[in-house]
Write a protein that binds this DNA or RNA. Sequence first.
RNA 1: GACCCCAUCGUCUAGCGGUUAGGACACUGGCCUUUCACGCCGGCAACACGGGUUCGAUUCCCGUUGGGGUCGCCA
Length: 503
Amino acid sequence: MSDNEIRTRLAPSPTGDPHVGTAYQALFDYVWARKNGGRFILRIEDTDRGRSTRESEDAIIRSLKWLGLEWDEGPDVGGPFGPYRQSERLDIYQEHVRMLIAEGHAYPCFCSRERLAEVREERQRTGAGSGYDRKCRDIPAEEALRRVEAGEEFTVRMKVPLEGKCRFTDLLRGEIEKDWASIDDQVILKADGFPTYHLAVVVDDHLMRITHIIRGEEWINSVPKHVLLYDYFGWEPPVFCHLPLLRNSDRSKLSKRKNPVSIDWYRKTGILPEALLNFLGMMGWHLSDEKEKFSVADMMENFQLEDVTLGGPVFDLDKLKWLNGRYIREDFTTEELMDRLVEWGLNRDHFRRILEICRGRMTSLSDWGDLTGHFFTGRIQYETGQLLMKDLDETGTCEVLQIVLWELEAIPVFSRDPIYSMFRELSEKLGMKLRDLTAPLYVAVTGREVSTPLFDTMEILGGDVTRMRIRNAMDALGGLSGKQLKRLERRYVSGGTDEREAD
RNA sequence: GACCCCAUCGUCUAGCGGUUAGGACACUGGCCUUUCACGCCGGCAACACGGGUUCGAUUCCCGUUGGGGUCGCCA
C-alpha cells in the first residue's frame, strides 16, 4: 500500500438484518475507493456484546456479496491491519484508554446506571444540556486508582473541554461549529471492558489508515468527540463526508416500521442487485441528466464525492421497480434471465423448503402452482372480507394486525418457533383463540384462507416480506389513522428492537 | 426542549446571476396492439416565505417557516 492510497471502510454492527442504508453507504465507499485505485475495507463493529450476533454478521456479508460490493480487507479475507472484528481488538482499545488516562484526557467513572438515568432526566427537564454531570471527573487520580484496584465497577470517560468551540470540516457541508459545552464526557470504555463506538472507531480508522470516512448524516453530531480523540492521540483525522439519510415517504429516517429496509427483502421480491445499486446511486447523485440507468462501473468513472446532493432522498419503491424492469427487459437474453430466475427462487434449495411444508397437501404434482404461488409473487391481491378478524370490523382488525406487526418486529431470529410462541402468547394476551387470530393472517400473508402452514411460511418468506404483506393487508382494509395508531401504541406498548445501519 | 444539518414538480433530480426552470418515476390523454405489459407522442405539476446584495435573483447573504438528525455503559 502506498502512503497516499485512498482507503474507505464500511463499519456495520451485526445486530439485525442487513440494512439498505448500509448498502447505500457501502456503494459510495466502494466506488470512491476503487475509482481512486484505493481499497475498501469491511470492519465489523461488534462492541455491543448483548446484541451482536454471528448470524447477523454472516447475513450482512452475504448481502453485500450478493450486491457485488467486494472489500479488499475484512474479517473473512484478512488484511494487513486486522483483525477486522472489533471484539478481537480489545487489547488495542484498552492500551489506548490507558494512554488517555495517563495523559489526563480520560478518567474512570464510578457512577451507577441508576444515577446516570436520574441525572439525564433531571438535565433534560431543566434544559441544562443533557447527559452526564461530570461527577467523577475531578476524583484525584490516586483515589480513582484505589477504587479501581479495590474492584469497584467503572467505565472510562473522555474529558471534553468545558468551553470554547469545536470546528471541523465536512467535505459536503464545509466548516461546522459546535460548542464544547454542548458535548458531555462520553464513555469510551464500558464496564465490561469493551470500548464504545466512539473510541473504537477513532482507533481503528487511524490504525487501519482510513483516509475518508463516508457514512450517514446521523453521525455528524459525534464528530467533535472523534476529532478530540484524534487530537489527544496526536493523530491526523481523516476526511469526513456525511451522506444524507435515506427517508421514508414521510421524510423520517428510513425505518422498518414504514418501509422494507432489509437488503434481503429486495432480493426476495425479485429486485436485481444491479438495479438496487443503480437506484441507490441516484439517491444524492446522478450520472448525467439524460441517463438514469447506469452501472457501478459508470459510476466509478464519473463519481465525485463533492457532487453528492444534501436533501434527504425519499426511497421510492415505484421508481426502483421501474428501473428494475428496465434491467430485466434490456440487459439479458432469455437464457441469462432464466439463470437469474433459477438463482433467485427456482432452485432446488428453495423448492425443497417449500415442498417440505406443502407435499402433504398435494394430490397431484400440478397442485404445486396453486399451492405455492405466494412464495413467488410480489404483491398479493386481497379479498377484504377474508381479512377480517372474527367479531371485528376493519378498524378492529387493523389494530390487531398492527399489534402483530409490532410483535413480529421484535422477534430477533425470524424462524418458526419464536413466531409460534409469539402468536400463542399474543392470543392469550388478547383473549382470542389462536386460530381466530391467525385466520386472517393466512389471507394477509398467502392471499388465501387455506394455505401452507403460517409460521413456516413466514419463516421462508422472511420478516420483511411478511411484515410488508401484513401492512398491505391493513391498507386494503383502510388502515389506521395516525391518531388511531398513537392511541393503540399507548394502550399496547411493545419493545421493538433497534435497527442499525453501518456507521 | 437544546444543539447540528437540510430546503427546485407528490417523488428522484438538472440548474452553479439573465432559461418558455430541463429530464425521470408516479398520475393522466392518445397512438401501437387479439388482452396486458413494453414502446412512442402529449398533458398535469416545483424554485417555502420575508428581507437584503445586484441593472437583474431559483442561484449569493441574513432571518422566518418547514423537515430531518443527535442528545445511551447502541452503533
